[in-house]
Simulated scan of single mutants.
Amino acid sequence: MDSILFAVGVAVLAFAAGMLGLKLHVWLPEKHAPDRAREMIGAMTGMLSLLLALVLGTLVGSAYTVYATQKAELETLAARTLQLDSSLEAFGPEAQPGRDGLRKAITQSYNRIWGGGGADLSGMDVKSVVAGSKILDQFLMSLTPKTDAQKQVLATANAAANQIEQTRVLMMLQLAGGISWPLLAIVVCWSLLLFCGYGLVSPVNATVVTALALGAIAVASALLIIIELSRPYSGLFRLPPGAMIETLQALGS
Score class of each variant (00 low, 15 high):
Phe237Val: 13
Tyr198Thr: 02
Leu56Asn: 02
Leu50Trp: 05
Met1Ala: 13
Gly123Ile: 07
Asp85Arg: 07
Met44Phe: 08
Gln70Gly: 02
Ala222Ser: 08
Ala250His: 09
Met40Thr: 11
Asp2Asn: 14
Gln138Tyr: 13
Ser128Asp: 15
Leu223Tyr: 01
Ala33Arg: 09
Val187Phe: 00
Ala155Cys: 08
Leu212Pro: 03
Ile106Trp: 09
Val126Leu: 13
Ile245Asp: 05
Ile217Met: 10
Ala185Arg: 02
Asp125Asn: 13
Lys151Gly: 10
Leu82Ala: 07
Leu143Met: 08
Ser86Phe: 11
Leu184Trp: 02
Met141His: 14
Ala79Thr: 03
Leu140Thr: 09
Glu30Leu: 09
Leu56Gly: 01
Gln96Arg: 07
Met172Trp: 03
Gly116Asn: 13
Val126Gly: 11
Leu229Glu: 04
Asn162Leu: 10
Ala11Asn: 04
Asp148Tyr: 15
Ala90Gln: 14
Glu165Ser: 07
Ser122Thr: 14
Ile217Asp: 02
Met244Tyr: 12
Ala243Ile: 06
Ala149Glu: 01
Tyr198Gly: 03
Ser221Ala: 11
Val60Leu: 01
Asp148Lys: 14
Val10Phe: 05
Pro145His: 02
Leu173Asn: 12
Gln174Asn: 03
Thr156Lys: 12
Ser3Ala: 11
Leu175Arg: 12
Phe6Met: 11
Leu251Asp: 01
Ala43Val: 10
Thr76Leu: 09
Phe15Trp: 03
Thr76Phe: 14
Leu212His: 00
Ile113Gln: 05
Asp148Val: 11
Leu239Lys: 03
Gln96Asn: 13
Asn162Ala: 11
Val26Gln: 04
Met141Tyr: 06
Asn205Ser: 06
Leu59Ala: 04
Met1Leu: 10
Ile186Arg: 04
Leu82Pro: 09
Ile226His: 06
Ile41Ala: 07
Ala16Arg: 06
Leu84Val: 06
Gly177Ser: 09
Leu223Trp: 00
Thr76Pro: 03
Leu48His: 05
Glu89Tyr: 05
Thr147Tyr: 10
Thr144Arg: 13
Asn162Met: 06
Val10Cys: 06
Glu30Ile: 13
Arg36Val: 12
Ala176His: 01
Glu228Met: 01
Ala243Trp: 12
Gly18Met: 04
Val55Glu: 01
Ala160Lys: 04
Ile186Thr: 12
Thr81Tyr: 00
Leu239Asp: 13
Asn158Thr: 07
Asn162Pro: 05
Asn205His: 07
Val60Pro: 02
Ala68Ile: 09
